[in-house]
Nucleic acid binder design. Sequence first.
DNA 1: CCTTGACCCTGTAGTCGCTACAGGGCCTAT
DNA 2: ATAGGCCCTGTAGCGACTACAGGGTCAAGG
Lengths: 134, 134
Amino acid sequence: MAFTIGDMGKATATKIETIRYYEKIGLLPKPARTTSNYRDYGQAELGRLSFIRRARDLGFSLDQVRALLGISGDRSGDCAGIDRIAREHLLEVDRKLADLTALRKELKAVIDSCDGGIVADCRIIEALGPVPPA
Amino acid sequence: MAFTIGDMGKATATKIETIRYYEKIGLLPKPARTTSNYRDYGQAELGRLSFIRRARDLGFSLDQVRALLGISGDRSGDCAGIDRIAREHLLEVDRKLADLTALRKELKAVIDSCDGGIVADCRIIEALGPVPPA
DNA sequence: CCTTGACCCTGTAGTCGCTACAGGGCCTAT
DNA sequence: ATAGGCCCTGTAGCGACTACAGGGTCAAGG
């Protein structure tokens, strides 16, 4: 029922430094301390950290995680805020996917244009810029 | 034939601070100066900056750009190094695409599970963690 | 001639989300 | 008693910029 910071890290695949960092920026509460000043966590903190990590894995920013935690703290409140943040994030992910897909296509075209030889004739260099030198 | 830093920025859609930053980290050479100590660029610098920006747009890191510039400086050298860097980068892009696609799928599933109501019943919160509170 | 505003300069600090020390204390087992 | 593994605080670093603060310069209009 009582965990060290190392236990928390193992349980959530989080580095100790990261947990301390979450505490510093106020995402995790300041935990109780043992007599030797070690952080002393309980089930609630473990749950909260798991939540944070899962949200991070889904690509939410720490600010978004903070908002999600804030809303989810009010269990009787409305779910709409949560939904809005998640949908906004999904849009952002879709934008990134579109950007990355376009980038990939262009990069592929640049690479395929090269068929070896010396730099002066290299199509990749040519595709990259008008005049590379300094 | 002579450009101010502002001209360079406009020509390549680069912020002035970014150009100075590129100079500071050695990607751009220290340019000549006017009598009033303004940076004084020529065609070669403009070409180099264009190259850098284009490579950045394609997602190359500044370290990769540095390497590309180094290789492309030797016009009679072999094109293979260029090709290798570009292909490595393509692999990285593919990895990112795969990751982002997987993330999107999971995020979508989490969002679709929510059909409104109060936080306590919210499937998004549920999907995110075992116990959210602090 | 003077002022206004747009440009330029240097240098430093902030962003995001960690990560990596440095320099110590504590605790258990041998 | 000593070795090792854990824990503590505090600070600095990463990439790739971005945003000031606090000044200098220059061309055009009044």
